[in-house]
């Protein structure tokens, strides 16, 4: 498995896309630090980028990569190698390279210019988002046969989680505003990894506003460590479940 990972990583590096991605994140982070001296405001601006760009890049890059290495996968499977090993090596090497790009791109300026707890949370939530969207991309890739279609599905995933879902949540909250919706809202948020990553961030940035609720449930959820534990836990599920499903499909798939 380490040897397969090594070859795939080499392949990924050769396309240079990862380098561009790192450079892009690095430049935008440095630019924000240059523009604003207030570190908490910089984290805020970076969060907006992370929540939009990281899912998009992760999911599109992974899908394209999967289809580009389709022949390599076929070749590997012709050898006496377990399908699980091939699939996991693919997942690990893509996730690893994207994670590395992200951590370097966002983390290096933070080390250089200094940051606070919210910066570390940003790194954590962005890393989780990367993993989640790589998983989702693998799922969309194994579910389709056609590259264009897979990219379409991937983009749809991104659009759905970044925008449509929140509009849907807001609509529900508006329509049922006469009812106690605290637990329902938290349950709804759990259905969207981007929202979970965002919750991790606003727990850091806006906690004094979040404490403005009368409900005891929210108070426990935001005030104690429960919100953090919940969001991180569900995000891990969001990594594991699509990955498991994709692996299941991949194992039985007629390539």
């Amino acid at each position: 498995m380490p040897r397969i990972i090594k070859y795939i990583l080499y392949d990924i590096l050769r396309t240079r896309f990862i380098l561009f991605y790192t450079l892009f994140l690095l430049l935008s982070a440095v630019g924000m630090y240059q523009l604003d001296s207030d570190t908490s405001k910089v984290v805020l601006s970076m969060m907006n980028i992370v929540l939009i760009v990281v899912p998009l890049v992760s999911i599109v890059f992974t899908t394209i990569h999967f289809y580009n290495s389709y022949e390599f996968i076929e070749l590997m499977l012709a050898q006496p190698v377990n399908r699980t090993v091939v699939f996991l090596s693919q997942y690990l090497s893509v996730a690893l390279s994207l994670l590395l790009a992200y951590t370097v791109g966002i983390g290096l300026p933070m080390v250089f210019y200094g940051t606070e707890a919210s910066g570390l949370t940003l790194i954590l939530s962005g890393a989780m988002l990367t993993l989640v969207f790589v998983s989702l991309a693998f799922l969309s890739a194994v579910l389709t046969r056609d590259k264009a279609k897979a990219i379409g599905v991937a983009l749809l995933f991104w659009f759905y989680f970044s925008l449509i879902f929140d509009a849907f949540v807001l609509w529900i909250l508006y329509s049922f505003s006469d009812y106690p919706l605290e637990k329902v809202t938290v349950a709804l948020i759990a259905l969207n990894p981007v929202d979970l990553a965002r919750i991790l961030m606003i727990l850091q940035l806006d906690v004094s506003a979040l404490m403005g609720y009368t409900g005891a449930f929210f108070k426990d959820f935001f005030g104690g460590g429960m919100g953090f534990a919940f969001a991180t836990g569900v995000l891990l599920l969001w990594v594991a479940v699509p990955l498991g499903l994709a692996m299941r499909v991949f194992k039985r798939k007629d390539l």
Partner: peptide
């Protein structure tokens, strides 16, 4: 204004939708 009317809407604060 929205979160004044629907406090639980605070959970989607700072999302892309809210920004728009």
């Amino acid at each position: 204004v929205i979160s004044e009317h629907i406090p639980s809407a605070m959970l989607i604060w700072r999302s892309f939708l809210v920004f728009l």
